[in-house]
Design a protein around this nucleic acid. Sequence first.
RNA 1: GCACCCAUAGCUCAGCUGGAUAGAGCGCUGCCCUCCGAAGGCAGAGGCCUCAGGUUCGAAUCCUGAUGGGUGCGCCA
Length: 581
Amino acid sequence: MNLFADIRDVILNCLDQLVAEGVLPGGLNTDPITAEPPRDPAHGDMATNAAMVLAKPAAMKPRDIADALAAKLTDDPRITSAEVAGPGFLNLRLAPSVWQGIAGAVLAEGTDFGRGSLGAGRRVNVEYVSANPTGPLHVGHTRGAVFGDALASLLDFAGFDVTREYYINDGGAQVDVLARSVYLRYLEAHGQEVAFPDGTYPGDYLIAVGEALKAKVGDAYLDKGEQFWLEDVRNFATDAMMDLIRADLKSLGVEMDVFYSEKSLYGTGRIEAALEDLKGKGLIYEGVLEPPKGKKPEDWEPREQTLFRSTEHGDDVDRPVMKSDGGWTYFAPDIAYHYDKVQRGFDLLIDVFGADHGGYVKRMKAAVSALSGGKVPLDIKLTQLVKLFKNGEPFKMSKRAGTFVTLRDVVDQVGPDVTRFVMLTRKNDAMLDFDFDKVLEQSRENPVFYVQYAHARVSSVLRKAAEAGMSLDDAALAQADLTLLDHEAEIALLRKIGEWPRLVEIAARTNEPHRVAFYLYELAGEFHGLWNRGNEVPSLRFLQEDNPKATMAKIALARSAAIVIAAGLGILGVTPAQEMR
RNA sequence: GCACCCAUAGCUCAGCUGGAUAGAGCGCUGCCCUCCGAAGGCAGAGGCCUCAGGUUCGAAUCCUGAUGGGUGCGCCA
């Protein structure tokens, strides 16, 4: 159930009646009409802009519409009052039973409360991480992984049929570099002294791979030219790297549905097929690009290349799909990959890239637009940089200095739950500060702690109730007399809980999972606020001695909050805490 | 040179398909514990929403331009 949608329907019905009665003209566009929580709770429980939105098209004064609408609305038993305010807002007050019913709905539906129908079963493919299989994941990948995973879960919760996908860049030159680097480690495993020239990967993580290669092939590749070992070592090494990456992802709790290999596109005619499709649309041609302005094009020489006319689909310049030496550019397999996604019948595609790939957004969108005939939207979300701090001091990340911070470093130090939550406390397109010390602080300043603490407090209440002999499962709590929850502070918490379905819809529509994190912080704030009121007002405490009926109702409320927190944390991929330590 | 992202309180940031007096945390000021719910609570001060135009009944939100910061820009992925 979504209370805001329900009340909006009531408003629309009333408007229909007014049209039928001739008060309002017919044929009005009702799309802009909203039912939303008012900024100031003193204004009531819900506000609608209907009168203001309709005033102009209906050629009437907002107040006249508002007055007529108000009279109709109060016919509904759920709406106790409707007041015209400000420039023409209609502030509604709802019967307490409406809010009390929220707790009942949450207890009945459990963590499915708020599950939406926005997606309507449409199939969406969310591609994220997609790091090159040349080493362990670092902090930047971590943000992309957390963001993509939370977005996928959010869309699932909003009613989409979600596929989580990882594109393995195992077809380009960088995996040859990887193979050569592993070969050096292989020689090293055989006792040889080796140096790592520029353009190879010197990381320690390849030592074990070199040894594993030795264990597999013995001395078969010693003193042999590349032509003897390159392909085999490349496969061996990329498999090893993907195992490493999969393990990294697992430590964060990320599990992909599909790992899609770039290599599988080569030599199978699939790149050719995708480009043939574009060619058939007249979007492939031979031409020479202008040199980029600004940077000195010292080594620039005009060359004729095979180009994709991406400017036809909103890009700034056309993009090469074939190098002057006749090989594919990286863009060609990317086109083929997205062609494949379109062919697989997804209704919507989402790519999550790091900010350094911002330059590819337009061309990828152009490609998908062209390939799908504009039918399949591609949304590309960029995750901005993560700046690391330790004790408030910037923490520089450098491969050379050996302070290369990996996903594993972060997860080992602060745990997957904290990592995930903190990574989602910013919009994806803003930079994020990540302080190893602050994220572990236990204070209101730390949203992870604050939200977890709220959930743990509810668990604590339930434990204490159990000790007092009140064993209460959700089904039993649903039988509680919720009309006892009549205090303004209790209604305030119910009101916040009631916003959850609406929040899910907004977050899913905008592809912004960080909204869930902020909502949970607010919800936790309401809960802690109620808890604290219990210090001064004993009747607000959750456990009421010698009054099992009231206790039952209050626990039902607390449990409802905990269920929504658990559902929200579930979307973020964070485990709700039963107790704080 | 061009493209994309960012700019909101002293600091770090929220702010819904445009809505009412722009919010939170931290910091600051002042109150509140002899135990039982203070790893806290209550209250207050603090704003030209970077700037200049425009659209609108109404703009932090949309459009145009400027300024400052970030990222990227053929034959790497």
